[in-house]
Structures are given as C-alpha cells and as structure tokens.
C-alpha cells in the first residue's frame, strides 16, 4: 500500500506536467524554426558530440534533445507520436514493442546487419554490458568477485559491511532495469538467489544509473548491480574510487536503439540523423562517438547480447509482468521489510 501511494505520488506530477524533462537542450537553435525533436534516455553529454557533428554536416537543421527515463519515453511517445522525430532508448523491449505496434517509420539504406535492426525501423547503435560496479574501499583486502556466484559469496561473507549498501535499479520504475532483470532471470537462477541475498541486505533501489553511480562514488553504497558500464566510466572524477566488473559468466548486454516516429514532422532530417548516427558508431573516432559501438570487445568476455526479436515483448505482457514484479518484490522488498 505504501508503495502504491509512493508510486502514485511519483507518477502523478509526471502525468500532469508531461513536459518536465530530466534535461532539454537546443542545438543550432537559430538555424531553423523547425526543430528536429529527439526524445532520448541517454544523457545529453553522450549525445552532444554526435549532434554537433550532425549539425556540422546539416547546418540548416536545429535539434532539440529531450532526456527522460525509458518508461516515460514509452508513455510520452505513445501518447504523442507526432511530437517527436527520433526516439532513442536503452529499453530494447519497449522500443521493439513500439515498432511492433506500428509507431515507427522505416528508414531505408541504413547499413546495419539484420541482427542489429528490426523491420528497418529500429536501429541498434551501441553494445553495452550490464556491469557490477564496486567501491574499491569496501573490497580492500578481499578478492574482487568476477561472477554473480562469487558476488553472492562475498555478500554473504560480510553482511555487516554490505547491509544497506547495495544498489540496483528499481525495476518497477526503470525500463532498462526491468529489461536487465528479466534477461538476467531468463539466463540463470543465480539472479533470484542474488536478489534474495541483496533483498536480505536491505538493497537500495534507484530509478536511474546517475544517482546510483553518485552514491557509489561517495561510498554511500559499496556495490551496484546491473549498472551500465558506460555511465560509470564516464565519471572521470570517480575513476579511482570505483571498479567496473563485467561478470565473466555472460554479462547481459544491451543495445541502445533509435527509431523514427511514424508521424515524424521532419522525416527526412530524422532519417539523415539515423544514418549519421549509424555511420558514426561504425567509425573509429572515439571523440565523435563516446558510446561503446556495436562491435566493441570489452575485456574480451563472451557476451549475451539481448536479441532484437519479438520475444522481447514477452516480459511486457501484463500477466507476465505482474508475475515477475511480484516475484521480484518477494525477493527484494518483502525481505527488506522483514
């Protein structure tokens, strides 16, 4: 009940003030009255060089970059598909369902292999594994766990250190967190044991990776599970304090995807943006494309990249989601309250 009220209180203002963005930036504003509107879950800092190189190629296009969470993107975009040109999100499942529901317009001539696109409408442009990020201090003098199993053992070994100092996504709020959780659960039973152990240690739940990494850097938490490595690496100032671990037994790997709205007001520019984005990701210039490209080999670990296929819609099913969340809450929250 408390959760329900909290949820309502959290969702309500967002519903009423739908335009409250995490971030909103204009590029090349003076160039044109018409703005290419991009709704995205990726921090502006990652996209600034991408947009700037796009603008230098298309100086007549103004770009408005709007940042919000993956779940919000799904909700806002479905309500007003004609208000946006490009949709970028890390929640592959939500993105794929949008395409399946016919809300994306196909873009031709995008040079991507078939596994990195769906219906010529949804285009993957990064490959980012979910990482375990730890605060080095907490593990000083102890072996650093490099698998989920070892993490469980480490947590069990020193509960007093980790109680209240473990963080992960609140899968009820974060689309990406939900995607990672469901794919993890699908991959192995270890996930549930890990959640139970973490739940018993009063896990902290975050809506977004930013907050989680902040807390990790300053030592509020010692372990963050299923965080995007790319976000953690970007925090140069915290580099010394944290360490990114890619679980050697199949890190779940997500692909950030982009699509053009079916009702895009500026379809041509939007298509150009998609092509530009794909061209950048396959290019070798790190400065122009600060995100991990599709073919990157991080630490040479074998990765299980989440496939772009209709099966992604499985966990979005109402019944399935309800059941999964119930189980998740069982493991994470109930134990927390005990």
């Amino acid at each position: 009940m408390r959760i329900a009220i909290a949820l309502v209180l959290w969702v309500l203002p967002q519903v009423i003030f739908a335009q409250e963005w995490e971030d909103r930036q204009l590029f090349n504003d003076h160039a044109s009255e018409q703005k290419l509107r991009i709704i995205s879950s990726t921090d502006t800092s990652f996209f600034t060089p991408i947009i700037k190189s796009f603008i230098s190629k298309y100086p007549n296009v103004a770009v408005e970059y709007l940042v919000t969470g993956t779940a919000d993107i799904d909700r806002i975009f479905r309500a007003t598909p004609d208000a946006f040109d490009v949709v970028i999100s890390s929640a592959m499942d939500l993105q794929l369902k949008i395409v399946n529901d016919g809300l994306a317009r196909p873009v031709s001539n995008v040079p991507l292999p078939s596994w990195a696109q769906w219906r010529q409408s949804l285009f993957a442009f990064t490959s980012e594994p979910a990482a375990i990020v730890i605060n080095r201090e907490a593990f000083a003098g102890h072996p650093i766990p490099d698998t989920r199993q070892k993490l469980i053992e480490a947590l069990r070994a020193r509960p007093e250190i980790f109680r209240g100092r473990i963080g992960t996504y609140d899968v009820r709020k974060s689309g990406l967190g939900y995607l990672f959780a469901t794919q993890d659960a699908r991959a192995s039973e270890t996930y549930w044991r890990l959640m139970e152990v973490m739940g018993a240690l009063d896990i902290r739940l975050y809506c977004c990776s930013g907050d989680m990494i902040n807390d990790l850097s300053d030592g509020t938490i010692a372990v963050a599970y299923n965080v995007l490595g790319s976000y953690a690496t970007a925090r140069v100032e915290s580099k010394g304090a944290i360490e990114i671990i890619l679980p050697s037994n199949f890190p779940t790997t997500m692909m950030r995807t982009a699509m053009v709205s079916i009702d895009a007001p500026h379809f041509e520019d939007a298509s150009a943006f998609i092509r530009h984005l794909i061209a950048l990701q396959s290019g070798s210039e790190k400065a122009a494309f600060p995100l991990p490209p599709l073919n990157s080999k991080l630490n040479d670990v074998e990765r299980s990249t989440i496939a772009l296929e209709p099966a992604l819609m499985t966990f979005l099913d109402t019944l399935k989601r309800r059941r999964f969340l119930a189980e998740w809450e069982d493991a994470v929250i109930q134990k927390q309250q005990k």
Partner: peptide
C-alpha cells in the same frame, strides 16, 4: 499465464 520466452522467440 507465464508466457515462455520461446513462444514469441
């Protein structure tokens, strides 16, 4: 109804 992942896959 716990739709198996394989059903859609």
């Amino acid at each position: 109804v716990d739709i198996p992942y394989a059903s859609f896959s």
